[in-house]
Design a protein around this nucleic acid. Structure first.
Lengths: 228, 228
DNA sequence: CGGTCTATTGAGACTTATCAATACACGTGG
DNA sequence: CCACGTGTATTGATAAGTCTCAATAGACCG
């Protein structure tokens, strides 16, 4: 078994574990696989640019991809950070022919790349199985995106950071710790903050028993965060 | 022809003109119609509450519905304002069994009310036609919602208001005027602002030739707004 | 015409962005 | 293994933007 074969097996495994494919039957998954190619990205690689004609949608197999928009002066705002198992630009399968945001690898990343016209063809001729899977993915994304708006509008920086920390400690009781999945500057963008604001939020949370050592976060009292 | 029949004809017309049904074939539309009942709402009527078990999704036939979330202290943040032709809670067809936000009529409104379990049944047995239509609707909503995040994070209050005014003047050249579709307090919420902030934004825009008389807005120089 | 709801305006406080300077982390090569 | 350099993170000072509260003005409906 050579290296390439091993790599392909790994790709296939990651492909199967995607949110889009997880509840798919085998036949549909194979049809989708036929539309896919794979791409390796290095940090800061551009996947596509806002305004480009849309040719593919993507699933993240490993690493992270940052979706963001730029205004006329070049200032950037993150819209979403996609991690392993998540897909992006799949909102273009059922309408839209232009990418409406930039996509950039935020880390070494492996992506599955689905040809949009092939996917559309399959989705129109498979009895609706693929359409349902994509609809499921879109539902999840829509819910997350609405959550994000509500979170931005309802909570302050410290509250948003605390909430994020709690989400990452899912399952741990009273106290917990974990390692940030990506750089703080990216986390800041994901939370709609400038990096300095994230630092200051961590500084505030230190008083509530949150210790930050590089990417390692330790939380002494999760209830203290929940009370914010 | 009696009053009821007339009303039903009107309902049917509005039903057909919905974004969800607009590109649907007749058979699918009829199957969807079988899942529907209709409801009339008065201003401030609650359609459903955050946390309620999800039983229906909705299309707005006339009027406006406000989707919002509440934090623990009771402060509210609007997530979306749905107008004629738009649907909401359709993200629950393919997953989710609880409403994650409040829905409240913002005006006298007529709604089509789709039984979720019936819709799910149809969507699983019609060869994918309904699933594709819903996926199309979800795509549009996801795109709008992502736009909203980028807009919130990238633009100031004045810029967001200016952008909204320009959107409403779609098609008009250099100067334009129109009537706000709903109250200013609702517009403020939609734009992620307190009502006072919307007032102040209008005050600022007055210097750029925007005149506000109640709900009537007149814009002398649309390019001046575009330059913001 | 009066009452009620909605919108505007002012003053102040709070939150976050921005800019600039410093400190820290990490990978590289000596 | 340490020193170095680059990129990332923190901290401080300031400015900008928005919210909140309170008071007034205006719009709309019966």
């Amino acid at each position: 078994m050579n290296r390439t074969l091993l790599l392909n097996e790994r790709k296939k495994t990651l492909f199967v574990e995607t949110r889009l494919t997880s509840s798919m039957d085998m036949a549909t998954m194979n049809r989708l696989m036929e539309c896919a190619t794979f791409a390796n990205c290095y940090p800061r690689d551009v996947v596509f640019r806002q305004g480009d004609p849309a040719t593919h949608f993507y699933s993240v197999l490993s690493g992270y991809v940052r979706l963001y928009r730029q205004n006329s002066e070049g200032r950037e705002a993150d819209i979403r950070v996609c991690g392993p198992g998540e897909s992006f630009a799949d909102d273009l399968v059922f309408g839209g022919d232009t990418y409406e945001y930039h996509a950039q690898a935020a880390d070494k990343a492996m992506l599955a790349r689905y040809d949009l016209s092939k996917v559309r063809h399959v989705a129109n001729s498979d009895g609706g199985l693929l359409a349902r899977a994509i609809a499921g993915s879109l539902s999840g994304q829509l819910q997350e995106t609405m959550d994000c708006i509500a979170n931005d509008r309802l909570n302050t920086a410290v509250q948003r950071v605390a909430l994020y920390l709690l989400e990452q400690c899912e399952g741990q009781e009273s106290s917990g710790s974990f390692r940030l999945a990506f750089q703080k500057s990216l986390l800041a963008g994901k939370l709609g903050l400038a990096p300095e604001a994230l630092s200051r939020a961590f500084a505030t949370l230190k008083e509530l028993g949150v210790q930050v050592h590089g990417r390692i976060i330790e939380i002494e009292d999760m209830d203290a965060l929940r009370r914010l």
